[in-house]
Design a protein around this nucleic acid. Structure first.
Lengths: 87, 87
DNA sequence: TAGTTATTTAGACAAATATCTAAATATTAT
DNA sequence: ATAATATTTAGATATTTGTCTAAATAACTA
């Protein structure tokens, strides 16, 4: 839960998730869309991976990233539960 | 969106929201349930208030806090949109 | 009015975070 | 084998964040 919210708490990372929603992309392809160095993007991708929000698969010299939204269920459930009135 | 995720990215603040779901509480009442100084809790409450997640009403010498979940719609919508497959 | 209670503001500090450049690793191509 | 390409790892640095104590503000109470 913590790792998840941590991963979501950055505009660049949220934008990466939005991009991966459209199509799978390699690390370099993702990095090219930002004015941020490749190592920094690599670090963001690592955090997203740690949170389970993306899955990385090595294909030759590329590493392809894809979105994994199943882990968001936990967040969704928490928010919905909070929204349901108890008073 | 940023302020919102920022506010949610802390276990203490999320716990405060969970507590406020049960009933409205004063700042001191909230602080009493944590092993954290009152000024620190006051700061957490301020961040939650800035994000619109809580509403504070002064009543005499007390300040009562209540949950406001309407602002979570934005987050909810974003997550759901991300979850809906596009590929 | 003086003291007590509730809460915040101010200022300091350590830890976490986002970023960078340089170097390392791994794969493909010549 | 060498060079080029894709990505990560390492290490440094500035900023942000969570926490603290001390002081300020505001509202009750005797």
């Amino acid at each position: 839960m913590n790792t998840l919210f941590k991963a979501l708490n950055d505009p660049t990372r949220r934008q990466i998730l939005d991009m991966l929603k459209e199509k799978d992309m390699s690390a370099g392809e993702i990095a090219d869309r930002f004015n941020i160095s490749k190592p920094s993007i690599s670090h963001h991708l690592d955090l997203l991976r740690q949170a389970g929000l993306v899955i990385s698969v090595k294909e030759g010299q590329f590493i392809n990233y894809s979105l994994n939204t199943t882990v968001l269920d936990e967040v969704l459930t928490w928010i919905v539960q909070l929204t349901q009135t108890n008073k």
